[in-house]
């Protein structure tokens, strides 16, 4: 068992090392792709820089996810307060409609309104990702035992103190799960952002599809998959650090 774990760890480190080299060293990436695609003329895109696209992708995903988290959290908290409770049913019904919406549709719809480039990509990702976060914030806050919030109120905590000391800490796990879902979806939708000139690793895949170059597609897809798994494992580590207190 111990041996197995060590082996796993070594393999993982090697994999990460490989990707880091692939991203930062264009020559190494080229010679690697050359092994697989021996007959293709260009294996590295002459104009698109892998490092740039990689960071564009990360920036697009993190900017939209962070904004959505911030606003989604505020909205989720608002509809669970006394002053916003009237909106709870409305927000829940909008969430249930929006979650059946395909992410690609949201992206396509933002183009007529915002044109091409980073803004529509950012806005589409933001709009789509706000709903899982609001929904999980509501679920997280509602999952807090009513007896706990009520007795906290009764012993003289103010509503603000209850929100920050009781409700949010106890809802944290569920909220983080929402951010995780959102990030996963965003990494995927960001690849399609290339279609609206939003940049990111999708550009490599799309230009591969246009030029009929399998090497571009393969390297773009490989890096996107790697990025998605890295984000996801970060969240799974984060989640495992938060104890589940509501059980």
């Amino acid at each position: 068992m111990q041996m197995n774990k060590k082996l796993k760890f070594m393999l993982l480190s090697l994999l990460i090392l490989f990707f880091v080299l692939f991203i930062f060293n264009q020559n190494l990436a080229e010679s690697f792709l050359r092994i697989i695609f021996s007959t293709t003329r260009n294996v590295i895109h002459p104009r698109l820089n892998i490092l740039n696209m990689f960071f564009e992708h990360i920036i697009l995903v993190s900017a939209s996810t962070l904004t959505a988290t911030l606003i989604g959290l505020l909205l989720g908290v608002f509809v669970t307060r006394d002053s916003g409770r009237n909106f709870l049913a409305l927000v829940e019904s909008i969430i249930s409609i929006m979650q059946t919406f395909p992410p690609a549709a949201v992206l396509a719809l933002s183009v007529p309104a915002l044109g091409y480039g980073f803004p529509p990509a950012f806005v589409a990702l933001f709009i789509y990702s706000i709903f899982p976060i609001v929904s999980n914030t509501i679920a997280g806050i509602n999952s807090v035992d009513k007896g706990i919030t009520e007795s906290s109120l009764a012993i003289g905590m103010s509503k603000t103190e209850i929100l920050f000391k009781v409700e949010l800490p106890l809802a944290l796990r569920v909220i983080i799960a929402g951010v995780r879902t959102t990030t996963t979806i965003n990494v995927g939708t960001a690849t399609i952002a290339a279609v609206v000139s939003g940049g990111g690793l999708g550009s490599l895949i799309i230009s591969g599809l246009i030029d009929n170059n399998t090497a571009y597609i393969f390297s773009g897809a490989l890096l996107t998959a790697f990025l998605a798994l890295v984000f996801d494992s970060c969240f799974s580590i984060l989640e495992s650090k938060i104890p589940d207190l509501n059980r």
């Binding site: 003289g156 800490p169 106890l170």
Partner: peptide
């Protein structure tokens, strides 16, 4: 209300202790 409640102890059936606080932290809230 908040001042009032701090002067009135309250015990309920489901206890309502904060699960992320220790016994000591729970008692020292007020």
């Amino acid at each position: 209300p908040v001042t009032l409640r701090r002067g009135i102890g309250y015990v309920i059936q489901s206890v309502g202790l904060l699960p992320h606080y220790t016994v000591k932290e729970n008692i020292s809230i007020v």
